[in-house]
Design a protein around this nucleic acid. Sequence first.
RNA 1: GGCGGCAUACCCAAGUGGCAAGGGAGCGGUCUGCAAAACCGUUAUACAGCGGUUCAAAUCCGCUUGCCGCCUCCA
Length: 499
Amino acid sequence: MALQIYNTLTGKKEEFVPLEPGRVKMYVCGITVYDLCHIGHARSAIVFDVIYRFLMSLGYEVSYVRNFTDIDDKILRRATAEGVDYRTIAERFIRTFHEDMEALGLLPPTMEPLATEHIPEMIGIIRTLVEKGVAYKAGTDVYFSVERFSGYGRLSGRELEDMVAGARVEVDENKSNPLDFVLWKGSKPGEPAWESPWGPGRPGWHIECSAMATKYLGTTFDVHGGGKDLVFPHHENEIAQAEAAFDAPFAHYWVHNGFVNINNEKMSKSLGNFVTIRDVLECVHPESLRLFVISKHYRSPVDFCDETVGEAERGLERLYSTVETALERTAKDGGADYPDDVLKKQDVELYEKWESLPALFAEAMNNDFNTAQAVGYIFALQRNLQRFLDKFGRKNLKGPAARLAALAADSLLKHCRVMGLLMLEPEVFFDRQRKLKLKTSGVTEEELNDLIALRHKARLEKNFAEADRIRKELEEKRIQLEDFPEGTKWRVSLQPPVG
RNA sequence: GGCGGCAUACCCAAGUGGCAAGGGAGCGGUCUGCAAAACCGUUAUACAGCGGUUCAAAUCCGCUUGCCGCCUCCA
């Protein structure tokens, strides 16, 4: 089955046919750089990162553009509050954004243009709109006239009349229709300003995306994405501006991700339930957050709470653990080839899960990026592989058994990596995971190692009361000891990120 | 007031016409000095309710109830 994408514009799943065979042009609205990013931004970024990776895995050459809004009221407000230039604020939060995205393991987009570096392009579009009579100057501002664009409201599925009727739109005596939106804002004294045919000012919010998207991807391109909240008015306005100016359809497929709630409440600054990406990454591995996000369909709302994140984390550890075990036990003897029927005889169910995964995975992902279903198929293979490994006790696998296990592990890795999971060597993952978690427990690695040594001595002396006392003491600090023939390992359970 | 979405086991969550994926948690077992991890077994005559279409419905249609989002900056 070919890739189907749910298109907000039509409200239906549609077969994806790119404008140019083999190439995809995708624009995703980035952030306004005035504060640290929260997990809602993380969800959006992860969702589109998975889409980006999946499109590339299908063999497409993808041009992926994600912008920064680096001039805006909120940036100016913060700059004034701190007594610095707006650029200082913008640069700071571009930097923190990049740090967060890198920490989350996101691939960088093809391009990350800044609004302020595209003022001439925006002025060009506004000039065209004014010349066509679709935009008008009022006072020091220039507005887009929604009545002059017949398709207005198509994306968000509303009629102009309905919107005006019950709208909570601020009355502005400059506008001829309350829904008209600003293209160019005359600047007040002391504000940053650019020269324009309408006097010094700065661009309105929506125009930058129309300008940057068309500049880098052409007047018509394939995919435009962003959070659900951007459907109206932002994306509606982008379409109006671009199509009115260029007389060409703007984006073909509109993709919108759902929101993140916290403990079933909408996340917002006023409710004080705002969780930044860096807060979460203090106690949760980035891939756990990623698995949490992709365990649910991207269009549904998702509830972020200790329990749901903890579930994702345990699932991720299981994936890594199975892959690690399989790689270790097949390292010596997993490379030689055997006929299919020989492999199948090793374990029919495992063989079938392994054999069917590529098609099932593709089918799930082709069905509007159904990562949740894809994850389900991956876990089914993981469980069968782990079961197969357990049959051999702690021994290394040999011959066709080793081969089958190695193939299954490779398949797990390969498919997970299309979604940006299992990107680390398992031992690196577990090492980082332990160090990250230990920090949240308040115990240093030295203290822990001393206690483990002490307990080891007690166990040798069969002083199990003392050994259990140490176990219990550490358990109270969320540290779980695991005894193996080769020594004692430890793990730390999740520090609740939400509280 | 307008537009849209959702309701599947104890929890999370796929499934959108043909025997209800997957994960977490619980319980019983194997293993262990004890644990943990892992594995095995177990947990929905059933998909908010009512009615309809169909040989067949969680899946389509209608109504009811309950949650939620957007219409203002917002991922």
